[in-house]
Simulated assay, not measured.
Amino acid sequence: MESPTLTENRPYTVPPFAKECLEAAGEAWHAAHDHAFVQALADGSLDSDRFRFYQMQDARYLEAFADATSIISTRCTDPDDKLWFIEAAQMAVVVEQELHAGYGEELGYDADDVAQLELTPNNRAYQNHMIASAHTGSLVEAVAAITPCPWLYVDLGQQLEAEMGEVPESHPYAEWLEMYRDPAFNEYMDHLLERLHRFAVAADPAARERAKELFVLSVRYEWMFWDQSWTKQEWPV
């Protein structure tokens, strides 16, 4: 799979500060697109044990993503911003968890199994990174830390759609591929990236630089999330 350029047109608006973040994360962004886990997921050759590992860890990650966006909502003074982040938290918990529930039945796990799951080192570190940024960073830093997760998935879903066309019903991960190419995510990205830019404009230069660093760190964690699922990461001791 050939990763996209950072300058290509997207079906949603990428404001100037978002472009700066993307450019800062360029190498890691491409690496996340090109990971062996993603390639195997796209062509359907990914074994079910690896996908099960990924799905269960991701279910727990989404809980932390919802926590982070909920915290961000409490820090917003504009009611529209506050409501948007509350709804983003709801999407993470309700909408995407429906996907996990469907695959859970197919792959042999349920909500209790997810609740009792031991987090991988990478997953725990990524969650701590988002929650800490939401609590202690400026508003632009907090939003920068959560942005790579949805942005990378939407970008990836649309890239795969361009390369693959219609997903065959026989594809073992058709539901996952269809979800992240949904045009509804374009509106989501418009709203998220507009807020990231607006909060950056309101921040001082030092906060903007820290936000870019946090964005890059989250992109690296995204690559690590693919990698932990590919290797079925365990704690070394």
Rank of each mutant, 00 (worst) to 15 (best):
L192T: 14
G165K: 04
P172S: 06
H135A: 04
Q233D: 10
Q228K: 11
L62R: 12
V114I: 12
A134K: 03
Y153R: 08
V14M: 02
R10A: 06
A206V: 11
R52A: 14
T74D: 08
V237C: 08
T231V: 10
E118H: 10
Y54M: 01
E166V: 14
E27C: 03
E166R: 10
H35R: 02
P11N: 11
P183A: 14
T147D: 02
A32I: 01
G26A: 15
W223F: 14
Y173I: 02
P236N: 08
G157L: 11
K212P: 05
D58T: 09
S48D: 07
Y126G: 12
W29V: 05
H129S: 13
A18V: 06
H33T: 02
K212W: 01
W226A: 06
R124Y: 14
Q55F: 04
Q90T: 12
P168R: 02
A31F: 03
A25I: 08
V93C: 06
M1Y: 07
S45K: 09
D47F: 01
E169G: 13
Q228C: 11
A111Y: 00
R60F: 01
F85E: 09
D190C: 00
I131S: 10
W151R: 08
E209Y: 03
Y126S: 11
S218C: 01
S229R: 04
A174Y: 09
V219K: 00
W226F: 05
L99Q: 08
A42G: 06
